[in-house]
Simulated assay, not measured.
Amino acid sequence: MQVQGQFNARVFLAEQMTRAQGLKLKRLSEEAYQPAQYARDLSFTEAARRIQVLEAEIELANSF
């Protein structure tokens, strides 16, 4: 039997980015001059993908 309103961490993490992700994504998007990459309503997975892409872009830019 499942209680209505029960907290499910997997569903929460799949649906909403964490505070740490939000802070990191905001910092990276500003550092990469791409503020549009940050949005408050991103999913956990989408935020992780954008963080990875921005980190790669910044690393590439710093290699020149």
Score class of each variant (00 low, 15 high):
29 S>A: 13
2 Q>G: 05
51 I>D: 05
16 Q>F: 14
33 Y>A: 11
37 Q>S: 12
26 K>E: 09
31 E>Y: 03
16 Q>T: 15
1 M>C: 04
4 Q>A: 10
19 R>K: 08
17 M>Q: 14
16 Q>Y: 10
56 A>L: 10
2 Q>F: 12
18 T>H: 01
8 N>I: 06
11 V>C: 04
22 G>F: 02
63 S>R: 15
20 A>I: 01
8 N>Q: 05
1 M>N: 05
6 Q>E: 10
53 V>I: 14
48 A>W: 03
46 E>V: 10
59 E>S: 14
55 E>K: 12
1 M>R: 09
48 A>S: 15
58 I>K: 02
5 G>R: 01
1 M>A: 07
55 E>I: 06
51 I>F: 06
31 E>H: 01
57 E>A: 08
13 L>M: 10
46 E>P: 00
29 S>E: 04
39 A>G: 05
5 G>N: 03
3 V>Y: 04
3 V>Q: 09
28 L>S: 11
30 E>G: 09
51 I>T: 08
49 R>M: 05
54 L>D: 02
28 L>F: 10
26 K>P: 00
33 Y>P: 00
42 L>M: 08
37 Q>D: 12
47 A>C: 13
55 E>R: 12
59 E>V: 06
19 R>Y: 04
26 K>L: 13
32 A>I: 07
35 P>T: 08
49 R>C: 03
42 L>T: 02
1 M>L: 09
63 S>L: 13
57 E>M: 06
44 F>S: 14
59 E>D: 13
41 D>W: 14
62 N>T: 14
55 E>S: 04
39 A>T: 07
18 T>Y: 01
1 M>E: 05
5 G>I: 03
61 A>I: 00
50 R>W: 05
10 R>E: 15
38 Y>F: 15
33 Y>F: 08
3 V>S: 07
64 F>D: 14
44 F>A: 12
58 I>T: 02
48 A>D: 15
44 F>E: 08
40 R>C: 01
59 E>K: 15
60 L>C: 00
37 Q>I: 08
44 F>Q: 11
45 T>L: 06
63 S>Y: 10
59 E>H: 10
2 Q>D: 14
53 V>F: 06
56 A>M: 06
4 Q>D: 07
47 A>D: 11
36 A>M: 12
10 R>D: 14
36 A>V: 10
47 A>P: 06
7 F>N: 01
23 L>Y: 00
27 R>G: 02
23 L>K: 15
52 Q>G: 00
35 P>A: 06
34 Q>N: 05
61 A>W: 11
56 A>V: 00
26 K>V: 00
55 E>Y: 01
25 L>M: 10
26 K>M: 07
53 V>S: 11
16 Q>S: 08
24 K>Y: 01
51 I>L: 06
25 L>K: 07
58 I>C: 01
62 N>W: 11
20 A>M: 06
32 A>V: 13
9 A>I: 13
15 E>M: 12
46 E>F: 02
45 T>V: 11
27 R>E: 13
37 Q>K: 14
